[in-house]
Every structure is written in C-alpha cells, then in structure tokens.
Design a protein around this nucleic acid. Structure first.
Lengths: 341, 341
DNA sequence: CTTGACAATGCAACCGGTTGCGGTTAGAAT
DNA sequence: ATTCTAACCGCAACCGGTTGCATTGTCAAG
C-alpha cells in the first residue's frame, strides 16, 4: 500500500502537502493540488484511516455491544430495527458502526469498557442497561459520549437517553386488556435483570392496582425474550386451572408467538378464550395467526435519534445531555378480544 | 487517558518495557512486571487499540457492508442471521465487526473499497455480489482476505466462498411443486442485479424444462426482497386469468408473506387454490397463516464459516481459498398442497 | 577468576498521517 | 523602490504503541 510519502515523492512535494490536499486544507495552489492528486491516482493511494485516527483522536465509529449468545436475540425484530436506525444515521454522517459481541452479563460491561478504553469508537450506544452492573457509572469515568436506550434507573442530568416510556405504555396495554373485561392477566417479561423488564413490570402492576386487581405472583414469569420462554410460561400458568390468566402480555413478539404456539397446541382458542399481546410491532406479529395485537416500539427511530445525539456530541465536543422520549403505539389485531364470561 | 509512557514513568521503567508487559512478551522479570501492572492499575491504563493497530498492521476487525437503504432488508431474517453467525465467531476469536452502510448499487463497492483501502479491517465478508460491478476483482487488487457469500459468477481458485447452492435447491423446490401437480409456477425473485437471484432463476428454469414445462415470461417477477414486492407480484400475475400461477416461489420469506397477504385479500384459499413457498426459514414463516413452506438457508452457519475462514487466513497470512457449500432444507408446512384440478 | 550464555531492560527508529511554525515568493500598497 | 501582506509549502515534532539492536547484569561452566 502506498503511503503519503510515496505520493509526496512522486509529486515532488513534501508529505505534509499531500496530507493537506487529502484533508482539504486551504492554501494549496491549484497546480500542486493537481500534481498530488495525479500522483495519488497513479499509485492508487488511499489515506490510512488508522494513522489518521491516531493523530486526530477520532475514529468515525459508533460502537454498540450485542449479547450474541442468545440466539433468540436475532429472531426478534428488536436487533435488526436497532441496527437499521443506527446504520442509517451513521451512514448519513460518514460514520461506521462497530459491533461487539458479549457473552454473560458482566461481559457486556467488559466489552464496552474495552472498546471505550482502547479508543476504538467515538461514541457508544448502550443497549440494555442491566441492574446488576453499573455500566453507566463506568462510562462516565471515560470522557466519551454515550446515549442510553431507555431511561436509566438512577436518572441524572449527566447522561443522555432515548426512552420508550416502557412503564407508561405497558400500563396502557394492561388497561386495554382490563377494558376488555380481563382480570386475570399474565406478564411474561424478558430478562429480569434488565431495566426494561422492571419498567414494564411496574407498569403492569400499576395498571392492575389502579383497577383494584390483586395479581397472583404466578401470573408473572420471565421468558428471556426467546420464543420458547413464552411457550414455557403458558405451560406453567395453565396449571393454575380456574385461576389461569385469560390474557397474556409478552415483552416482545417472539415470546408472544411462543404463547400463541402453546395455546394452539392445547386447542385454546385465541382470542375467544385467551387474549395475547406482544411487543415491538414486528412483521411476524402482523402475519401470525391470529394476527397479533402488539405494542409497537419504534426502535429504529430510537437508535436513529441516539446516533444523531452521539454524532452531534462528537462534533461539538459537548457532553450529550439530550433526554428524549418516543411514543409507542398499540396495534390492535385479532389476538385480543373480550374476556370469556 | 494515560499512555504507555505515563505508566513507564510511574513504574520507573522504559515505555518499551510496559509495552512488553502488555503484549505478553517474554524476558520480563516478575518484579518489574508487577510494578508495571500496579502502575497501570493505579492510572487506569488501557492500551490504545488504534496506536497498536498502526504498528501491527492489524485491526482485529471483520468488515461487512449492508445496503441500509432498503428498510425491508431489516425485516427479513437474512440480515440478523448473518450478523449472528458473524458475531459469534468474531467474538470467539477476539474480533469485532465493522458494519458499513451503503446506498445505491455502486455505493456498496465504494464502501467496501473505502474500508479496505483505508485498512480499517483485517478481512471482509462480501454479502451480495452484484452482477453490474466487479467487487471481487477490486478486492483482489488489495491484498486483503475476503470471503464471498455465494458462488461468484466467474469462479476462480483465487477467491474463497461459502455457497448455499441456490440453483440446486431452488430447482428442488420447483420439483417439489411439480410433484404436487403444479404446472403454472411463479418465480418471485429478489433484486435482479444480484447473483443469488440469477442463480435461483436458473434453478427455476432448469426444473421446469426438465419437466417439459414451458414457463410464461409473465410468471417471473422481481420483488426486491421486500414484502410489498411479493404482494405486487400477485397483483400482476392474477391478471393472467386462467394462465395465472397455481404456485408461487419467493426468494425470501418476506416476499412470500406479501404473497400470502395478497391472496388472502382476494379470498384465494392457500393451499387449496394456490401454493406458496418462501425462502430462508424465518420464524415469521413458521407462525404465518397458513404456516409457510420455506426453503431454509443456513445463513448464520454460512457467515460463521466465512468468518472462520477469514480469521484463519488473517492469522496464517495465507490467502483464503476454501470453497465450501452448505446444505439447505425444504421445510414443508401448510402453505403448499396439491394443485387444483 | 575469566569467559560465555542468556535473561532483563533501555534506546531509538518506525507505523502513516497531522499541524504549528517559519521561510519564501509574488503581488499590492505606499 | 521599498515595505507589507498573504498565499504557499517545507520542516520537524507528535499521536501511542512496537521491536530490532545494544547494553547491562547474573550465574554457571571451565
């Protein structure tokens, strides 16, 4: 690979001149500019991004860490939508996306820590903030812009976030089910150690309390966001007999599909006997049978916004502080109906 | 951020000693090693990955470029499965994934060219090789390992690939439909400029010819891999009246779902009147109504394999040459049945 | 007691761009 | 004709690790 010095030599100028040409600096005569570009063209020169990053202290990368160990993570619409929003904005502003994998709980922090500490990215999107580890605290130590997806459990004016108002909208879903006459409503959450799960659970509990319903502990279960988690939750709850739920709320569509599958296998008609609501508004939900009522969460928009905040912060040098929220939407389809009498 | 020199100063050693400690070089006494690590700990030192990359000429990154402009791209199971396989292997070997977006056709090449030319990654996975641009030729110019997903149209011993045998398995699907008595079979391809589409079309044509069926040109349409593409294809083909297809093969599940939607709207019973087959084996296909028969393509396994090949090549320094193929599987469900009489 | 071998560490150049500073030159102003 | 200004471009240090080579120290063999 030719370097800036090779080009300089061929064009008969100093390396710094070549650098100035390629980084669009002023005070370069038209003649030398052309000579340099010609030499670069002839040699097939492209500036080395790594070297440039080293001096500029800028990588033009946005980082995101994904728990790749859960296969189901890639089956729900969450991950691709996140990537969509992120990529679109990153691309628009000339950034690329650095995706890191992560194994266990702690490892997610390790990975983020590693990427940030080794200066491989200019900003970070924090996907899931776990309750068991203080990732946000760690990130504040570094002087790197980051945006959290969802409102952190210990809100601070120092951190930027984009929130989907999980608690509020989950409550809205539960109220909708109550409005249909349901009183025995199940909550099938994702990973119990993740903030979003806790928020949704709080929304669930609030809505029930509001209606004067005392929820059974057995109505709450965790499916870790995978299809089989929803399936298993039904298997367990069905044993409650007459106290079994007549409606299920699942924290993503994947688990809701698992719930539908379990009900179908047991020949329990949906929505006549049992109603089911999913979350995320996936395409699979729209095409499921029966078509799944689902709480659409605009994850693509959320990450797009997060990426915008990050990039602005990187470019201005100011710590990101924007705290915004997006609106979700309950898409009512065929999987929900009046409670059986 | 503290540098290696800060640590050296604090530990009372030379920077090179610190470097040796952190890169696990031999010939460092236990005493100084401890002093260095202690100093590093106290300062919160982490080696700068960019600087390291500059000298080592290694970034520990695998690159992939994604056409982010098509929203539908993120709705099918293809993209997340590709990411899953890639991330798992990358993570296992300590690599990270660099994802670049891309706009139009040419832009994909530009982006890959840019990443490779600026040495931002050690290897590249070439997702879709278009027919209109010679990306492979360009990559061969650079001395960087790359693996192509799918067999290139001009096979060469110089390039490594992981192939899903698109032609063969598409033909198998068509033969299955013919076996069910269908003779008017539609082909709804993805992007006509992409190699996989051409391969599938060839498989389709071969299977029909084999059975002595002369396909109508109107039976072939392109849906560009998006849901509405499948929907529109039905709208057009239905106008053929008595010559309209009794079976549809779609090059991904998303388009197949669009086909199902179009048929449902027109109250055409599936599979009694028309059969539908999708591709990719998505979860949405399993939960669709009727459950979609689909050609499962192991994209996660393919990218996992591609990543392995890449990493081995990076580590040995040998140009990757492995050319392997994976097996697909036709998953028969409820959307296909005997042709109407 | 010398010599040799090898462990341990320092020195300095290098990876490939970037940039503050200073020198040169040409044209404009006086 | 002289001075001033600003465009143009070279010089060299720097970003933060890495590594071949040189040097010092230590211990065992001769």
């Amino acid at each position: 690979m030719p370097t800036i010095r090779d080009v300089a030599h061929r064009a008969g100028v100093h390396p710094s001149t070549v650098s100035r040409v390629f980084s669009g600096k002023p005070y370069i005569s038209q003649a030398t500019r052309e000579r340099v570009l010609e030499a670069a063209e002839a040699l097939g020169f492209q500036p080395n991004a790594i070297a440039r990053s080293l001096t500029l202290q800028r990588t033009n990368m946005l980082a995101i860490v994904v728990p790749h160990v859960f296969d189901g993570y890639f089956d729900d619409t969450f991950f691709p939508q996140v990537m969509r929003g992120l990529l679109q904005v990153a691309y628009k502003y000339g950034y690329r996306v650095l995706v890191g994998g992560s194994g266990g709980h702690m490892d997610e922090v390790t990975q983020v820590y590693d990427i940030v500490g080794s200066r491989q990215a200019d900003g970070v999107i924090v996907l899931s903030h776990r309750l068991d580890v203080d990732l946000i605290g760690a990130l504040l130590e570094f002087n790197i812009p980051f945006v959290v997806m969802g409102r952190p459990d210990t809100p601070s004016a120092e951190v930027a976030w984009v929130d989907a108002q999980d608690r509020r909208y989950t409550a809205e879903v539960i109220r909708y089910l109550i409005g249909l006459g349901h009183r025995r409503i199940a909550f099938v959450g994702g990973d119990p150690d993740v903030a979003v799960t806790v928020e949704r659970l709080l929304g669930y509990q609030a809505a029930l309390e509001e209606a004067g319903i005392e929820p059974l502990p057995e109505w709450v279960d965790y499916g870790f966001f995978v299809e089989d988690g929803g399936y298993q939750a039904v298997q367990r709850m069905i044993r409650l007999g007459s106290r079994a739920p007549t409606a299920y709320y699942a924290a993503n569509d994947l688990m809701a599909l698992g719930i539908l599958r379990a009900l179908r296998e047991r020949h329990i008609p949906v929505p006549e006997a049992v109603s089911v609501v999913g979350t995320n508004g996936s395409l699979a939900a729209a095409h499921a049978h029966p078509a799944l009522t689902t709480l659409f969460v605009p994850y693509a928009e959320m990450t797009a916004r997060a990426a915008s905040i990050l990039i602005r912060s990187i470019q201005t040098g100011e710590k990101p502080r924007e705290q915004s929220q997006v609106e979700c939407q309950l898409i009512i389809r065929a999987s929900t109906g009046p409670a059986p009498t």
